[in-house]
């Protein structure tokens, strides 16, 4: 003998399935295929090495500072 809870639960499981129209389902499928192509086509940007450029930049800054200091000493600034 089914009680009310069983009847309600069984009824919920047996409710008819729902779906969008065939044309709408086809349209959404197409949009998703396009988006999927776009989202997976973009390769992740290659990671650029950071240490090398940073060292070169620091060395250039020091060299520039030393040059300016030397120039200032020569011309008496």
């Amino acid at each position: 003998m089914m009680d009310d809870d069983d009847i309600a639960s069984a009824g919920l499981r047996l409710l008819p399935p729902e779906d969008v129209s065939v044309s709408r389902a086809r349209r959404l499928r197409g949009r998703c295929h396009d988006e999927l192509r776009r989202s997976t086509a973009a390769e992740p940007a290659p990671r650029r090495p950071l240490v090398g450029p940073a060292l070169i930049g620091a060395w250039s800054a020091l060299y520039l500072a030393a040059t300016l200091r030397a120039a200032a000493a020569i011309y008496g600034f």
Binding site: V20, R24, L28, R31, C32, H33, E35, L36, S39, T40
Partner: peptide, 15 residues
């Protein structure tokens, strides 16, 4: 219908 569209579009964008 609109929310269904957005659900699957999010799936492919996050794939």
């Amino acid at each position: 219908e609109d929310l269904l569209d957005e659900t699957f579009l999010r799936l492919v964008r996050h794939a």
